[in-house]
Amino acid sequence: MEGLLSALIIIGIKILVILAIVLGVGAYLTLVERKVAAHIQRRPGPMVVGWHGLLQPLADGLKLLTKEDLFPRYGNKFLYNLAIVMALVPASLVFAVVPFGPEFEVFGIRVKPILTDVNVGLLLFFALGSLAIYAIALAGWASNSKYALIGSMRKAGIVISYEVVITFALMGPIILAQTLSTYSIVQQQIEQKLWYIWLQPVAFVVYMFAMLAETGRVPFDIQEAEAELVTGFTVEYGGMKFGLFPLVEWYVETLSLSAIAVVVFLGGWSPINIPFVGFIDPLFFLGPLSPFVWFVLKVSLLFLFVLWLHWTLPRYRIDQITSTAWKVMLPLTLVNLVFTAIIAPVVWR
């Protein structure tokens, strides 16, 4: 009984941490993005609310909360609201399978900093990722507006295409690690003294592309396309309901996908890896905290990389995006799969 209680408490703490990331960090990332964007474009960005606009996200949140609750006249109310739930919940749930660091011991209890360490972690990730399509399709459909429908269809088409690409791209690392558990994948990388990015550069690049597409980042942000579609499928949403979509799409999903990328390709919480040499840890002075810091560092870097792309590149057309997925990405991943299957015995030794 005591075991159960402590387990529940640990679970509660983990959930709180994740929620903090999802909502707190997610919200603050809006500010980060605006700042980064502004500096890329040589302007200051938000400066008014708080020091250098530090309180800007709170102000935005409050503003969103105090908007009138509107509902499009010809829409379907149930599906309209369901779309939001379907967007938020799966995207957040992905964090359940993200390992933030190695197992450690506090007060005599061994804790794995991962909410659900199951042997099908990546499958869970794919399943949750696929559910995101429903949110998009439902949002566009339930709004019953032409812009929304077109946007949602485009987005759904993109997500559908890149879902396949992501699935196949991750197969190489899975072969090398022989497991679907995210925690074990990191462990395997540490054991084999090798980040999988060294063996799977193609898969990593493809994954990054897919990540941009899935999260609707430039150059794949055709569904938003402010100039043409007025933010696409969210056009009929207002207030907090509107706020949730970008939150989920741009920040929560980007974070979670970055986290998975880090876990699968960049060795998770492990320090810098050089092939044939091993791990070098410049942050050794942090002691037991260093893995967590490494993890956060890698995720942040990936996120900033995405932001950087977002504010520098133009955008593609929808058919260019999808045909890139099927004509370039997918063949690449298939080749990569076979290639991995051939070299895998070397890695296993």
């Binding site: 387990a7 679970i11 509660g12 983990k14 959930i15 994740i18 929620l19 969103l64 909360l65 105090t66 908007k67 009138e68 609750d69 609201n81 939001i84 739930v85 938020l88 919940v89 957040s92 749930l93 359940a96 909410l115 659900t116 360490d117 199951v118 869970l124 207002g238 207030g239 907090m240 309901k241 949730l244």
Partner: peptide
């Protein structure tokens, strides 16, 4: 193994419902 996941799911569902209804409460 999945208990944490299920609890998280429940929490998220409640949270998202809350966020949906906030507008009609506060706006």
């Amino acid at each position: 193994d999945y208990m944490g996941f299920l609890i998280f799911l429940g929490v998220m569902l409640v949270l998202s419902l809350l966020l949906i209804s906030l507008n009609s409460l506060l706006g």
